[in-house]
Simulated scan of single mutants.
Amino acid sequence: MNYELLLLGGGSGVGKSTVGFEVSVALRARDTAHCLIEGDFMDQIHPAPDGDPHRTAITERNIAAVWSNYAALGQRRLVYTNTVSILEAPMISRAMGGGAVRATCVLLTAEEETVRRRLAQRETGSQLAAHIERSLFMARHLDERAPAGAVRVPTDDRSVEDLAQDVLRAAAW
Rank of each mutant, 00 (worst) to 15 (best):
K16Q: 08
I63W: 00
N2A: 12
G9K: 03
Q127P: 05
M1R: 12
A29H: 10
S24D: 08
Y80H: 10
A57Q: 13
E38Y: 02
R116N: 08
L119V: 10
I45H: 11
M91T: 14
V23L: 08
P154M: 03
Q44V: 13
G20T: 01
G15T: 07
A65E: 14
V19D: 01
F41P: 04
R117S: 14
E113F: 07
D50L: 13
I58K: 06
V23N: 02
Q165D: 06
T155Y: 00
L8V: 03
R30A: 01
G11D: 01
T83E: 03
A89L: 10
A171W: 00
T104I: 05
E88R: 14
M96W: 00
R102I: 09
A57P: 03
L36I: 05
Q44R: 14
T56S: 12
L168N: 00
T18W: 08
H34R: 08
L36T: 01
P53Y: 07
G39W: 03
P154R: 03
D40N: 12
R77W: 00
G99N: 09
C105Y: 04
D156V: 08
A150I: 02
R76M: 06
R30T: 01
A71H: 10
F41H: 13
D43E: 11
R102Y: 11
V101T: 07
T18N: 05
A110K: 00
E144L: 15
P90I: 11
A57C: 05
E123P: 09
A129P: 10
Q75I: 12
R145Q: 15
T81C: 10
R140I: 09
W67I: 03
A171I: 00
L78V: 09
A95E: 01
S12E: 09
T109L: 04
S24I: 02
